[in-house]
């Protein structure tokens, strides 16, 4: 067992799968010799060779498109997009082909590929490097969207994503790439997708979050715990399809719901969660559903980026307001 960071866990998962499945190929900009700008693929090319870990020309739409072509012909590509701000040229390929290939050929051709991208703010990055636009992919049928928030889940979920017979957009909260370490056993065991992970059990209020915001949320609920407030924290983890069951069960127990996400508010994934709880769990609610989110503005450059994002203080305030309802 090794103490590893989230990004180390990703590298471990890719190495495991490269080792055990000859159809797995890692590709992207600077993923080979350089080992990735965040070093997610460090050492992989050296270990597995230039055919299995490929540096590609600089064109994100191309990276997605050739991954689809490879996947449809029996390979399992893991494509890295350097930052989410550069993911938009892939959208044509992802929405028009990756998500449709199985359905439109009635299962004749499939698309077992993973599109990895670091996302989110808080690392003082340049313009276009800090957005959280996971909701855009969640709106696309046929695509799974998965966001890990710990080294353990990063390892297990990336393995699950690579092995899944369908395309997975795997978004990595880069602010927490190296925030903490966990003991992760490199045993090739995948964790289930399509389900939420409960990070804290509690009976007073349900807080749903994902990605880097799990850290702010856990800090907030730990502070509230000292006041005797017991929050249930649910890491959504799979952004699409959403595991509504776990959320509804929790709300049934607590009667209150706060959703925390870094992405802009309007049409964020929080809106979908609120809608489903309103549809199916409204009689369990003792007060309005509340959201703590990024604002509906262009992500500020880094001098003000933390003011854009939900903070421990903002989360505590909203949870407390909710409890007063």
């Amino acid at each position: 067992m090794a103490e590893v960071t989230l990004i180390d866990a990703l590298t471990m998962a890719m190495a495991w799968e490269l080792e055990h499945d000859p159809s797995v190929v890692v590709l992207g900009e600077d993923v080979g010799v350089n080992g990735g700008v965040f070093r997610a693929t460090a050492g992989l090319q050296k270990k597995f060779g230039v055919d299995r870990v490929q540096d590609t020309p600089l064109a994100e739409g191309m990276i997605a498109g050739i991954s689809i072509g490879m996947a449809a012909q029996g390979m399992r590509p893991i494509a890295e997009i350097q930052f989410m701000g550069f993911i938009y040229p892939t959208v044509d390929q992802i929405i028009n082909h990756a998500g449709r290939m199985r359905n439109r050929t009635r299962g004749r051709l499939t698309c077992p590929m993973v599109l990895r991208a670091p996302f989110g703010g808080g690392i003082h990055a340049p313009e276009h490097h800090s957005e959280s636009t996971e909701a855009m992919f969640a709106h696309m049928p046929g695509i799974r969207v998965v966001i890990p928030s710990s080294p353990t889940r990063a390892y297990g979920l990336l393995l699950a994503a690579i092995r899944d017979p369908d395309p997975v957009v795997f978004l990595e909260p880069k602010r927490i790439y190296r925030l903490n370490k966990q003991d992760v056993e490199d045993n090739g065991k995948a964790l289930p997708m399509d389900v939420c992970y409960i990070l804290r059990e509690g009976s007073d209020i349900t807080v749903v979050t994902w990605g880097a915001m799990t850290f702010e949320t856990l800090k907030a609920v730990d502070q509230l715990a000292r006041k005797g407030i017991r929050c249930e924290v649910i890491d959504l983890t799979t952004i699409s399809p959403i595991d509504y069951e776990t959320i509804l069960e929790s709300v049934q127990k607590t009667g209150r719901l706060v959703i925390v996400h870094e992405a802009a508010r309007t049409c964020g994934v929080g809106a979908e969660i609120a809608a489903i709880v309103a549809e199916k769990g409204i009689y369990d609610l003792q007060g309005p559903i509340r959201r703590v989110t990024g604002y509906d503005v262009v992500m500020p450059l880094f001098r003000r980026e933390m003011d854009y994002m939900p903070s421990v203080g903002k989360i505590i305030d909203v949870i407390q307001e909710s409890l007063e309802d």
Partner: peptide, 11 residues
Amino acid sequence: CLHAAGAAMAF
């Protein structure tokens, strides 16, 4: 065109 290139890469 990209799917063909990807298929060729697989081959």
